[in-house]
Nucleic acid binder design. Structure first.
Length: 426
RNA sequence: GGAGAGAUGGCAGAGUGGUCGAAUGCACUGGUCUUGAAAACCAGCGUACAGCAAUGUACCGGGGGUUCGAAUCCCUCUCUCUCCGCCA
């Protein structure tokens, strides 16, 4: 959520920048500002009336103390009149504020100045392309065939117990999954991230905090409770970032760097076909996430560091990859700048997105009132960032496909200590 | 699941209808003192909105109510603690 004051001061830049997302902000921003003017005017009236009535109430107290009941009675009537006037104003103030928040929640984050205009992922820009595609034989296979052949994943069993998009990992498949999780976490911890293991269900306040609610409720699995619903997390970003919701962090505790492994649950309604084959798109998948909280002036550099960090993980797995800078049209609602990582999965001959690293600036922080007290003692909104390090299924797929040999699948060196194996055989 | 107690500033903890945005202690920040530190003493020390400012307003877990006036009384929700039961 953007701040009204920001929009006031930077109206033209904001409108201009949002066109990069193909978002026409002219009328909504004007409406927001004029509504906020109205809000201020109304609040001023309310405050003045209340000030007046506070004064009167004090006098009533004095009169009672002195036993001058008559005088007190007169003032009571005055006070009641003021009160009814205040109540009227309060009602309209509530509806103004409600509308204002509604409008603000509809405006996406301002794209960073280095983000280019674009319609869709086709307009994303390749920043880096690295690593070599393995030389595979003619009869190379996609991962869903390899997974079956080597008995690593049973997709049908998942169908039976839950539904499509819920694979069952078996034996060395399960162990490979666990090895990847451990390796990713260890790697992150070595780089200064603190490990968390958060709940996998969150309340709606948390959903609002990171921006999944109210706009994207249909993407989430919802658990109805008697009073308040809970949501299965679509990413660890939600519980981890919300750990810091509604807090004021001391300057010397920044930056905060967290990592967490969690399963992620996504409805993915409307997805079908080749795109979702095998591990390509699931309703439940494992992911290790990194979340960082920074001073405003440090977040740009922090994003670069996160990108290098994620790149180094993929390189250690010896997977060919590329980094894409997302164009305005492909940018997530809350993000101001996002880099996507894609690995080349040679069996399918496809690029698969395995990580998305974003700087949200103060967009999430404003929603969740996450602030820090800077060295001058002034409270400022933090900048939040996060990224996958990494999403497992597509890494799993690429590892199988790229490392397939005639009669075995090779395990990358970095994972061998975790697996206790150099390769998987039938 | 049953019975009871409770939720106040960073923490601890007073406050049961007006003088309370809230005592006191600790923590923290600045100063005096000191070669330096500690101790002691002095001062400051919540958040948001409006305003150039003075200042005004709101907030004592959330929401609603009673009252001229609510941290304080009533209703409700959430959460925490203690005891009993159940349980990985």
């Amino acid at each position: 959520m953007l701040e009204v004051n920001y929009l006031r001061k930077n109206k033209e830049i904001a409108i201009q920048s949002l066109t990069k997302r193909n978002f026409d902000a002219v009328s909504i921003i004007n409406e927001i500002i004029s509504l906020d003017d109205e809000r201020k005017k109304n609040q001023k009236k309310i405050d003045d009336l209340l000030s007046n009535s506070n004064q009167i109430n004090k006098e009533i107290g004095q009169f009672y103390k002195k036993g001058e009941v008559e005088n007190a009675e007169d003032l009571k009537i005055k006070s009641i009149n003021i009160k009814s006037e205040v109540n009227k104003l309060l009602d309209s103030q509530k509806s103004i504020e409600h509308t204002l928040t509604d409008l603000l929640l509809q405006v996406p984050n301002i794209p960073n100045k280095i983000v280019n205009k674009g319609q869709s992922e086709k307009d994303n820009v390749i920043i880096i392309e690295k690593g070599s595609v393995p030389d595979l034989p003619e009869d190379k296979k996609p991962h869903w065939e390899l997974a079956k052949e080597y008995n690593l994943i049973d997709f049908e069993l998942g169908n039976k117990i839950t539904g499509s998009g819920f694979p069952v990992y078996i034996d060395l498949g399960a162990k490979l999954q666990r090895s990847l999780i451990s390796y990713f976490l260890d790697k992150n911890i070595m780089s200064g991230y603190k490990e968390y293991l958060p709940p996998h269900l969150v309340n709606s306040d948390s959903g609002y905090g990171t921006g999944q609610l109210p706009k994207f409720e249909e993407d989430l699995y919802k658990v109805e409770m008697e009073n308040n619903p809970l949501y299965l997390i679509p990413t660890a970003e939600v519980p981890i970032t919300n750990l810091f919701r509604n807090t004021i962090i001391k300057d010397n505790l920044l930056p905060i760097k967290c990592t967490a492994y969690t399963p992620c649950f996504r409805r993915e309604a409307g997805s079908y076909g080749k795109e979702v084959r095998g591990l390509n798109r699931l309703h439940q998948f494992d992911k290790v996430e990194i979340v960082e909280i920074h001073r405003q002036e440090d977040s740009a550099k922090a994003l670069d560091n996160m990108v290098s960090h994620v790149a180094s993980i993929i390189e250690e797995l010896s997977l060919p990859y590329r980094i894409m800078k997302l164009c305005g049209g492909d940018l997530g609602f809350s993000s101001s700048l996002t880099y996507d990582f894609e690995v080349f999965s040679a069996g399918q001959e496809r690029w698969l997105e395995v990580s998305s690293v974003s700087n949200f600036q103060d967009f999430q922080a404003n929603r969740m009132k996450l602030r820090y007290k800077n060295i001058e003692g002034i409270n400022k909104l933090c900048h939040t960032l996060n990224g996958s390090s990494l999403a497992l299924p597509r890494i799993f797929a690429a590892l199988l496909e790229n490392n397939q040999k005639k009669d075995r699948i090779e395990i990358p060196k970095i994972l061998r200590p975790y697996m206790g194996l150099d390769y998987i055989t039938k």
